[in-house]
Design a binder for these strands. Sequence first.
DNA 1: ACTCCTATTGATAATTGCTCTCAATAACAC
DNA 2: GTGTTATTGAGAGCAATTATCAATAGGAGT
Lengths: 139, 139
Amino acid sequence: MDVKRRLRSRGYRVTPQREAVLEVLRENEGVPLDPEAVFEFTRERYAGIGLATVYRTLELFCDLGLVLRVHLHEGSQHYEINTGKHHHHMVCVSCGSVEEFKGCVVDELEESIREDSDFVVTSHCLSLFGYCPACLPAR
Amino acid sequence: MDVKRRLRSRGYRVTPQREAVLEVLRENEGVPLDPEAVFEFTRERYAGIGLATVYRTLELFCDLGLVLRVHLHEGSQHYEINTGKHHHHMVCVSCGSVEEFKGCVVDELEESIREDSDFVVTSHCLSLFGYCPACLPAR
DNA sequence: ACTCCTATTGATAATTGCTCTCAATAACAC
DNA sequence: GTGTTATTGAGAGCAATTATCAATAGGAGT
């Protein structure tokens, strides 16, 4: 568990709240959660946690690179444990379910931009929208 | 001007507010504006317009396909006239300036997804983040 | 042009998602 | 243990957006 070390080496403290939030995110690998959902799940482990602490913790984990921000364009921000495996999401516009896919062609795109433009790309955000197998027949 | 026709054919009315908002967006082709900016610009043409009307009008124009939602992840939503020319944006994380680029590799990506998954992709959202030529030296 | 129906509007209240404030608490280095 | 100070929970505050509702005004029918 090098997370404790990573926190302490930067002057941050290891608290049961932070451990609980991290566990929740780890249990939901591949499933982007919004702060409210993280709050609810974490309360099952640490009943007294406050919503503000969840927000602060998610922000901190993002800074530390432990967690990734996921933009599903659904009103609220979503978060996911950073497994190191780069991927994006397909969002069903009908039921809201999220599926991940591994392929990402943006690296190639960044390459071509490096040639055509003076803009230096450091990160990107890509989401796909459509219909999941379950909702397709209805549409 | 087939916009009037497109509105009326769907049972919507042509109002000076809607015409003013559309003109503002047309004058700013390629420049994503947030609702507040649209509100300010539109007031120069139609002083009495209310903010709620701007929000409603932008929403309506999106439904009609006249306007596109642009996700710059900047707190507020942005909107842009739909010229039919597919493109995405590069956002400078330092000064916030937005540059558009035409190339989009996602069509290829959608292709490969069609083969690998049962998910049917109907649209996508892609934004690139980095540093514009002006901000690069400072970084 | 006049009338009527109803879509639309502006003002404002309400809601949502998130951040700030601050006194109390609890890590953890010593 | 003790002291310093990061962290916490509760609630106030804030910004973006949406809902409410009475008043207004398109525009189809006459």
